[in-house]
């Protein structure tokens, strides 16, 4: 049996319980747990067998406003502002020392997951500086940005300097965007997002979006995805909404049962059935797909 990486909310009312190295459903032992720890919000974390480096350049602990986000509640073991050039240099040298590497040639992707830059220009500057720095360290992979702060053609054009750049637009939901998202995010309208995604593809960037399953009704999910599927060139990142203790009542009222998520999965598979795009397993730990997609083994 395979190992599945889980990052979960702690809920006192859950029927699932971890005790020592065992996972229980009520009193039934259903699985073995290892590498159990608090889910800290740190400066970086690794994925894909240590070949993808996720960095958190501006601490997300101060990034607040989106109702579904939990990072501002997370604990942190290391808060380093990686937008300060010296800090970024030291960070990479420390990382190479820790992982016993001479350079960054073994990395497949460096992911920047943050919406906490003061403005679009400072984000673009950071991404370009990052590219300059890691190129000198023999990095030949993709620089991936997840967020919504790239909002102009000028920025997308500047980012073409990066040999392999990917932009994942944090759409998150199609309904109630003004209530669920912080102002700077909801102010970037779905029509504007479409235009930017279209341009992003034109400038040669790998382009998709993130979506949280559990915020919209199924009909809104279906219509929204049909509306956006032509503006991507890689499979969207679908995350299941994890409702924390302090977020009770956040889910769409139709999304409080498992059938909603099963229906969502079938609906998404149907929408993308004509395309060759598929979910990337290592990219999402709260996904709708673990062992199969559209009837095929993953």
């Amino acid at each position: 049996m395979e190992n599945y990486y889980c990052a979960l909310q702690l809920r006192r009312d859950s029927d699932y319980r971890i005790s020592e190295d065992k996972l229980y459903f009520k009193n039934e032992h259903i699985g073995w747990v290892n590498n159990f720890e608090i889910d800290f919000c740190d400066s970086y974390y690794m994925r894909r067998n240590n070949t993808v480096l996720n960095i958190n350049p501006k601490t997300r602990l101060n990034c607040e406003g989106c109702k579904f986000c939990y990072t501002s509640h997370q604990k942190s073991r290391s808060i380093i502002d990686l937008t300060i050039p010296k800090n970024l240099d030291n960070f990479f040298y420390d990382w190479m020392n820790l992982y016993g590497k001479n350079d960054l040639s073994g990395l497949y992707q460096i992911a920047v997951v943050s919406g906490c830059f003061p403005n679009e220009n400072s984000l673009v500057k950071f991404l370009l500086d990052l590219n300059d720095k890691v190129e000198k360290m023999n990095f030949h992979g993709e620089i991936f940005y997840l967020g919504s702060q790239i909002q102009t053609e000028e920025s997308l054009k500047k980012l073409s300097e990066i040999p392999y750049f990917a932009y994942s637009l944090s759409i998150e939901c199609f309904e109630n965007r003004d209530k669920l998202l912080r102002k700077s995010k909801s102010g970037f309208t779905l029509e504007q997002i479409k235009r930017i995604m279209q341009l992003s593809i034109l400038y040669g960037h790998r382009t998709n979006f993130t979506y949280i399953v559990g915020l919209d009704g199924i009909k809104a999910l279906e219509e929204g995805l049909k509306n956006f599927e032509k503006y991507i060139n890689s499979f969207p990142i679908f995350n299941i909404l994890q409702e924390h203790e302090y977020q009770k009542g956040l889910r769409n009222y139709t999304a409080n049962n498992i059938q909603y998520y099963l229906q969502a999965r079938k609906t998404i598979e149907k929408i993308f059935a004509h395309s060759s795009l598929k979910p990337t397993m290592w990219e999402v730990c709260r996904t709708l797909w673990y062992t199969s997609y559209n009837g095929e083994k993953l």
Partner: peptide, 19 residues
């Protein structure tokens, strides 16, 4: 993912490998 998990640990979130 929908239900979360309970544990004695004092935190909002946890991570682990599950078999």
């Amino acid at each position: 993912n929908i239900s979360g998990v309970s544990s004695d640990i004092d935190a909002d979130r946890v991570r682990f490998n599950l078999r």
